[in-house]
């Protein structure tokens, strides 16, 4: 982060004020109290023998644990990617002029948001029992163009991510819809006036602006999904992190250290996701809330041309950075 700027640095200001800051005791007292509490917590964590840190350390990089992390990440990524694509489609359908599309979208959201994800996962686990054959044909006739055994498609892994993705899409589509509705209708009018078609306006004008609003809650949902993957034992799919650590715990009768192992990894992955989120926010925040710099330079040709110098470009770039820090905090 850039060092704090002093107002009017480098300018010739007569009688410049060099005042001492206000004396505040509150922050000092609060700091001492928080430091004491933190030290107590740290002492408890380190010295309490029941946490058994030696076992935590032993299993932190255990083969089954690492495999569990792999599957947890894979499930999170696949289900979020599918959910994001599906949610954008659902949100656009919801705002469509076609009443059939609107109805389908409404029903999807109503159903998948209205039933527990655990139940949905159980259902997907039982899918091949309920529907042994998947086929494409005309309903209520014997006409069939194509068919396949359900069990070859809906494996435990596929059932897990399908269940998670469909449920998540219902939630995300409401977030996407809120984002789309937050974009000024004047944007659509201006785009229409330029001869842009509905689909082009959505893709080029509305979605990129909505992204700025959609990303923070979607980051939230992704972190939520990381932990919701532990529910896939309902399918049952039994290779992800929570199940893997639990299995070891049951084998060696040490539940606490292995819960700690799981927590450490979940925290680690969440931290990485937070970094990715702030990068994305920075990308889609381009052009928003940038500080106006027109008052301080004079590059307007109507007033006589002045080349934009390097320092001015830097200043703009810095202006763009400054506003992002606030968003990430």
């Amino acid at each position: 982060m850039a060092k704090k700027q002093v107002d009017g640095e480098g300018l010739d200001i007569p009688d410049r004020i060099h005042a001492l800051p206000v004396r505040r005791t509150g922050p000092v007292v609060a700091g001492v109290i928080v430091a004491l509490l933190a030290a107590m917590l740290a002492q408890g964590l380190v010295t309490n023998p029941r946490f058994e840190w030696n076992i935590v350390w032993k299993y932190l990089f255990n083969e089954n644990v690492l495999e569990g992390i792999g599957y947890t990440l894979l499930l999170t990524v696949i289900s979020m990617v599918v959910a994001i694509i599906l949610s954008v489609i659902l949100a656009i359908m919801r705002k469509s002029i076609n009443p059939v599309l609107r109805g389908v979208s409404w029903f999807f959201i109503w159903f998948f948001r209205g039933t527990p994800v655990y139940t949905q996962l159980v259902f997907w686990g039982l899918f091949s029992v309920l529907v042994p054959k998947l086929s494409l044909g005309i309903p209520f006739t014997s006409v069939s163009f194509w068919s396949i055994d359900s069990s070859t498609i809906i494996t435990a892994f596929n059932a897990a991510w399908i269940g998670l993705a469909l449920n998540e899409a219902a939630y995300l589509s409401e977030i996407v819809r809120a984002g789309l509705e937050a974009v000024d209708p004047g944007q659509t009018e201006a785009a229409k006036a330029l001869g842009m078609k509905r689909s082009l306006i959505m893709r080029r004008i509305i979605l990129p602006q909505a992204m700025r609003i959609i990303i923070p809650p979607t980051g939230n949902e992704t972190i939520g999904m990381l932990k919701t993957t532990s529910l896939v034992l309902a399918v049952p799919f039994t290779l992800e992190l929570q199940f893997a650590t639990n299995a070891i715990a049951n084998r060696i009768y040490k539940p606490i250290p292995l819960l700690l192992v799981a927590c450490i990894w979940y925290l680690f992955i969440t931290s990485i996701l937070m970094v990715i989120q702030s990068r994305l926010e920075k990308h889609f925040g381009k052009g928003f809330e940038a500080r106006s710099i027109v008052t301080e330079d004079n590059g307007d040709e109507l007033d006589g041309p002045v080349a934009v110098s390097e320092t001015k470009k830097d200043r703009i770039a810095r202006g763009n950075n400054v506003k992002m820090i606030g968003l990430n905090a």
Binding site: E189, A190, K192, A193, L194, G195, K197, R212, G287, F288
Partner: peptide
């Protein structure tokens, strides 16, 4: 859209695309 192509419009509140630079705004259409 074809009929609109003969007409250009300027709005009271500008309605520039805020996620694009001046150049990108003009290049878009």
């Amino acid at each position: 859209a074809a009929q609109r192509s003969k007409l250009g419009m300027v709005f009271q509140r500008f309605n520039l695309f805020p996620h694009m630079t001046a150049l990108e705004n003009v290049m878009e259409a």
